[in-house]
Write a protein that binds this DNA or RNA. Sequence first.
DNA 1: CGTAGACTTGACGGCACTCAAACAAGGTGG
DNA 2: CCACCTTGTTTGAGTGCCGTCAAGTCTACG
Lengths: 244, 244
Amino acid sequence: MADDEYLRVFFRKLARRDLLSNEERDALRAAAGAGLVYEAKSDLVTEGDRPVISILLLDGFASRYRLLEDGSRQITAIHVPGDFVDLHGFVLKEMDHSVGALSHCQAVAFAHTDLQLITETFPHLTRLLWLMTMIDAGIQREWMVAMGRRSAAEQMARLVCELYVRLDVAGLIQANAFDLPLTQVELADALGISAVHVNRVMQELRAEGLFTWEGSRVTILHWDRLAQRAGFDDAYLHLEREPR
Amino acid sequence: MADDEYLRVFFRKLARRDLLSNEERDALRAAAGAGLVYEAKSDLVTEGDRPVISILLLDGFASRYRLLEDGSRQITAIHVPGDFVDLHGFVLKEMDHSVGALSHCQAVAFAHTDLQLITETFPHLTRLLWLMTMIDAGIQREWMVAMGRRSAAEQMARLVCELYVRLDVAGLIQANAFDLPLTQVELADALGISAVHVNRVMQELRAEGLFTWEGSRVTILHWDRLAQRAGFDDAYLHLEREPR
DNA sequence: CGTAGACTTGACGGCACTCAAACAAGGTGG
DNA sequence: CCACCTTGTTTGAGTGCCGTCAAGTCTACG
């Protein structure tokens, strides 16, 4: 039906990596359950939960995070539309971290029983779902490399590059610009630095004129120079379409 | 055969998380291919490779790492016996990072064609393999949290705790002690700090008397206090045995 | 027009970095 | 059997990135 196309952004993401058959699309449509809406700052899933559904983000931004005893927070992933934000729960069973909405979010639920059915009926589709979680893991590795071995400025520029490419896959880039509803405090928690330092580094990057970030609108001015500044290479996003 | 039991440590790791049927064990035995041996400092897989096998580590230690343009290195994971060090390659196809031997290593190869057969024949076993990669991803998240929000001392203590538990699953703890063939330079690359600082922090922890680290032998003296010092909680290792 | 949230700025301190050299221990060859 | 080399660990000095604390500005909103 016309309505089915709310999965478009997800199909687009999968099809970017491999052929997605009509049967597989149908299986996903059949497994898609209730629509979900979350307001900014609310949790989609909370550490310790044992979810019976997995959530596919359709619109808005979400973060994967953990809170420490001293109240500090580390964001370990930022999710964009088309991301399956907690396929983890399907195999892990118990959540070892939380997923929160960075903005108003729309999502769709996939019951674990239906996902299990997919794993028992559609091996290739299962591998693609597995692939999605492995690409997420690759993104995490890249964040780690940046946290451990790059300067705060490079790290921040790198994040902008990454989100640009991922949002492009989701079809959310218009004229080299995209929405990114992240406060400097949230950015700090994602980069593993302090909010004050985020502010200073942001000014430094602004002065370099590679991109602008006004309100929640990011505009890339010089992609090549930005990517170079950030030491960014999109290989880890595995954008090649090939048999998996 | 008697020889089959070289997969024991892997079976042990899987069975710790869910029931592993005899059919599944047989399927894994059938898929296990050539034995592999690597000397310390050699690569099991190199960034950019398109492997046609995946490697299960049977003995020794390996690291997952990326090299940057300026020659610096970030280790993103440390693998112990029983870890499938590059199941990644099976779904990602092209490696976006390298895996190197930290010590002399023995491993066994699983052809991707055989793994593909498993995904098409053993859905439950497939979910378990997927689970192994998701636990690795959870470990990565925990490393990120430590890198971003903990002090170098906590981070180092945390790594010792994690390896203690993971090696225990592999059956490699004797009398609260285990081998850990990591130089301070390698430790530095894993923690995202400098080698000089590793040395100083190590002395600090030594003075606290929570564990000893002599040569490549680590001995835990006070587990509870060490875990507390490190802010360590093993929930993210998902050690509960339950239907997946 | 007052308040809340986000951003910005300044002062100051410390954790961690770099550079450089010394020390320890195992391995090798003459 | 002992210089000598290599690899790893340790130490010192000097520096700087980045953290904390604290206050001030700006904007949106009721």
